[in-house]
Every structure is written in C-alpha cells, then in structure tokens.
Design a protein around this nucleic acid. Sequence first.
DNA 1: GTGAAAGCGCTAACAC
DNA 2: GTGTTAGCGCTTTCAC
Lengths: 345, 345
Amino acid sequence: MPKATIDDVATLADVSIKTVSRVVNREPNVREATREKVEKAIAKLNYRPNKAAQNLASHHSRLIVLVYDDPSAYEIPSAGFIIRMQQGALRACWSANYELLIHPCRYRNKDVGEELKALIEQVRPDGIVLAAPLSNVNRIVNAILETQTPIVRLSPGKQNGKQFSVATNDREICAEMTRYLVSLGHRRIAFIKGHPDHKAVGNRYLGYQDGLKQCGLPISDEFVIEGDNSILSGEACAAELLNRPQPPSAIFAANDDMAAGVIRVADRLEIKVPEQLSVAGCDDIALAQQIYPALTTINQPLAAMADEAVRLLINPEGKTKTPRTAIVPGTLRVRDSTGPAPGQL
Amino acid sequence: MPKATIDDVATLADVSIKTVSRVVNREPNVREATREKVEKAIAKLNYRPNKAAQNLASHHSRLIVLVYDDPSAYEIPSAGFIIRMQQGALRACWSANYELLIHPCRYRNKDVGEELKALIEQVRPDGIVLAAPLSNVNRIVNAILETQTPIVRLSPGKQNGKQFSVATNDREICAEMTRYLVSLGHRRIAFIKGHPDHKAVGNRYLGYQDGLKQCGLPISDEFVIEGDNSILSGEACAAELLNRPQPPSAIFAANDDMAAGVIRVADRLEIKVPEQLSVAGCDDIALAQQIYPALTTINQPLAAMADEAVRLLINPEGKTKTPRTAIVPGTLRVRDSTGPAPGQL
DNA sequence: GTGAAAGCGCTAACAC
DNA sequence: GTGTTAGCGCTTTCAC
C-alpha cells in the first residue's frame, strides 16, 4: 500500500490538512475532540509526515551535522572519543526529532572549508557541531560562518567568545585530582605537561598548580617536566623523575598515554604502583582500564558535551542569546594506580 | 543574499529550468555549448540544488542509513569496528553524492523493529546497511523489509540467501593462516574455538582444518579446545594446552581476545613468544597492536565491507539482480607473535 | 478554532 | 536538444 499522506489523514478525520498539520506539530488552537479524531486517523493510517516535504516547506531540515577530524586507520585510539561524541549528539538529536549527519574530515586538507560549505548548502542543516581540533582552525570556522549556519564549537580545553562553544572544567578538575593526591598523603607530586601546541593541556598544568596552592603546598617546577603526549615521552619523563635521589611519590600526567608510559617505566624499575608510586592520568581513554594497574584518571565527558552542543543548536536559546561557553564538568575516575603515600614521610 | 534557485540559474543562462536540471544531473541531450553556458551561470550564482526539493520531487533521498548495535560505554572496544564501518560506508556514499545517517540501536530492545520502521518512513532512505549482530535477527530484518526499503546485511561470517549481504572469506583466510604457521615449521598447531553461539567463528574452525588438510597434515581434535571469546577463556585454554607433556608449538585462536589471553599465560609460564610458542588471533582489534609482542592476526576488512554494502544499495545492480553475497577478503597481519617453530621438532 | 490557497525548489512526463 | 506543465507533501499566510 502506498504511504499515507496528510491528505489521506485529513479526509479520514474529516478536517482540513492544516488541522492535521497542527496536530502533528503540536501547535495550539485545536479543540481536544478534533485532536483526538485526527490522532485516531493518524494511527489508523500509520501516517508519518514526509521529511522532505516538511523541509522544503518549512525551510529547515531537522538535521544536525557533526564534523570531526577523520582518524586514519593508525590512530584509531580516538575511536572511543568519536563514538562517545556521536552518542551524545544522537541523544540530543533524537529527543528533539532531529537526525544527525556525521562528517569526518581531514583537517589538514586545504579545502575543508569549501567542502563544508558545499555540504551545508546542499543539505541545509539546522546547525553544525564542530569538534576539536577543527574547532580551533579559524579558516574552517569562518567558512561555516559564511553560510550563516548556527555553529557550536566543541573544544575540551579552550574557550572562545565569538561563537557558542562547549568546554570542560579542565583546570578545576585537575586541581581536584591534585587535592586528591595530597589527601592521600603525597607531598612530592610531579606533573608531566603535554605538548605545548595542544591547547587543552595548558589548563591542566594550571589546575595542578591551583590544587597545590589550595592545599597550602609550595608551587615549584622542581617536579614539573614536559612530554609530548605520547607514551614514549611519558616513559622518558618518568625515567628522569624516578632516577632522582629524591623521586616524587606521585606522578600526575596531562594525558593517559603519558601516564601509561610512567606505569611501564615503574614496572621496569620494579617500583610498585600504587604502593611505592601513585600515577594519575587525564582523559580516560580505553587503555586506562586495560593496563595494570587500572589507571586513575579524569573522565572527559564527551557525550555530555556533544549532547549540550546539539541542545544549544536546537533550542531557540541558542539562536538568540549572546554567545556563551557551556561548561560540562569532568569527573575523577579513581582506579588502582593511586594509593596512600609510602611511609607518610 | 538569498540562495540561488534553479530558476535564477535558468534565467541567467537563458534556458529553461529543465535544461539546468539536465546539466546538474548529468543527463544526456544537452548541447555542449548550452552545458557550458549553464555551468557558468551555476558557478557565478554559486548555485547548489536544494536536497529537500530534489528528494520531494524525485522520491528518493540520497540518504543511506547505517544501523548497528549501540555499544554501551563499557564495551567501547567495538568502537574501532564501528568507526571503520562508518568510514567505509561514508566513502561509498560520498563518491555517489549520498549522505549517511547513522543509527546505533540496542538490539535487545523489543521495539527496534518499530523504531526502524518509524525512522525509515520519515526519512525515506534509499537503502539500509544492517550490521551484525542485528543483521542476524529476523524480527529486525523483517521489519525493515516491510517498508520495502532495499537492505544489505553486513555479517562477517554468515551468509544468507534471501537478501543481499556482504561477508568475509573467514574460512579461506583462516586456512591461509594455518598454512602460514605450517610454513614456519609448526606441526603441533592448536586451535581455540570461539563461543558456539557466535556464528562467525564456526567457519574459522573449518578454515583451520582446511589449512591442515591442504598441507597434508592429519586432522585431529587433539589440539582443539573451546573458549567463549573472552580473554579469560583464552587464558584457561592456554593453561590447559601448555601444561600438557606434549604442548603445541603454535596456538591459533578464533579471536584476538583469546589470543591475548594465550600470550598472557605464556608470559606467566615464562614461555617465550614467538621463540618457544607462536600465537595467532583473528579480527585485528586495537589490542592486537598494543600487546607485547604485537599479535599476528587476521584483518576484518570492515571498511571495505561497508563500502561494498553501500555500493550494492546505490548501484542499479543492487535493485535488480537476484540477491547475492559479496565476499570481501580479509588479510593476514603478520606481526611479532609468530615465528619459526622451535627446534624444528 | 479551522480552512483555502499559495507556494517551497525541484523532477517527471511529455510535447515540440 | 529543449521547454512546458503538473505535481511531490508539506507549511505559511491569512481569511473566516
């Protein structure tokens, strides 16, 4: 049987198509009795509004596009992050009867801007969620802005006043992690900074300092060292720190990969984690639960962030109010790599 | 400026809108000079056809929906698989100017069928790619079929004659892995079977037997043992095999998790991999590259499979010919966990 | 509260 | 080769 149209429903319910439209779109000005009659007809005919027709007539597509960096096969570690973003974005979309289009792209390509403009002009999404690191590339952001499409930037660490964006409380939560380590009795807490180009991790170092300060501990860079976000650099930093005459009793790394490197070196040096050394990371990548001991870290609430981003796009609020940055808080994930400081010095 | 429409282009090029339509859709029967004139106008106005209007008028949406099982947060290991499927599906979609809608869903839900029907009737995709394990649930497949939407099932191991589907050459490639182990001098090659409910892995056992046969080795179940696909079961099976008076010199597991379990046990028993024991897995999950030594395994060509699935939906071939199963071959990924048999017995 | 009419921007079918 | 006409199935506007 051919799909029922709004006309069929109108005929069956003995009303005009406009009334059916009102019922379908939950508009006011329909008498309760009429509404019921229409709803009965809809159910009977198993009517579903045709999206293409709705889009054409209403000039909006109920479509959100999620744009993110396309992981090449060899950096599929980011897969978990992407899936979580998608899950969050989908949750918000579906709850508002929107659909989500995904658009991974290579952000090094010169033409990403043109590519996105073409996409936008064809499918006319009602909004774009732009994930980091693309959200930090002005060329790309501007290309999207030219199309007049609402955009929300997803940038875990960084804020930006010109458009709506969603970020985490990186700094605050890193302070919390530091306080947690102090509460376990640690006093010599080292911090491994990330690659300076990676904006998100700058705040983490500040958070580490905040945490020390809040506990009344002196801030010094004696135990601060810089890695490049890789496991290998974590190993190198750990080797340097742990071979000192006065090694730290806890090492807090600006990301999980480096923390994993620390654990690996500790294992090699036969330093027991967490009995002799506490290790904490940041990001809660899949690896964090797979290594031994399971890594204490900070969860990046990517799903919640993407959810919030879509909400900002869909809600009328997002269209009218002045740009703001929504903050979605991360949470501590205390696992097995942290414990009381040895000997309570 | 308001977006240009087909009328604007027609006016500027001084032709009818039908001619513009012909040029846009690369239809024949346009004189070269006319085509150029129109293309110039299109470029000048930066015209892009409105998808909603195209969809409404043409009764097709240039939209493919990829349906797969939604990983809960705690089984994100599957994230890599999903991303690869998406990448493959997107590649095929974009190359034909289609878009991809993703639709993860919980396949245990009773209402998945209804959910999918509602989705399909609203967005009217031109086709559905249904990934395993959903593709093996008749209730779900039938719900989709009721909507008359073309569907291609993605089921790595299993074939099914009633609809189009895409599978891998599990059996053949497992035979190849077995032959590879034999070529390294191994004669006592154990096989750890997977959970019998998991259809994909049955073929792997057959492939193992084929491989032995092809090398002229006797087939016996002396070295065949059954796990349940988990790392833990891999450990248990390995413990049993390696504690025998005559242990195998190579262990081939029906999936990577179990193979990882084998390596873990070997490490515990101080059996060197690959010097004393070769270990091979199947699936090429992310873990395969992360463990030490890196696991020799079989790549599941999920991206290529999804790509092929979308092609089947988009190409006219898919709509007319009789259902068939396309086979996308997997490939051996030789890494560090396999080597020459010790002592050449 | 409800309905009639006029599009939205395209494609399909057919005429020329 | 090219143009004309009539929709596709909705929403919008405005009249009642």
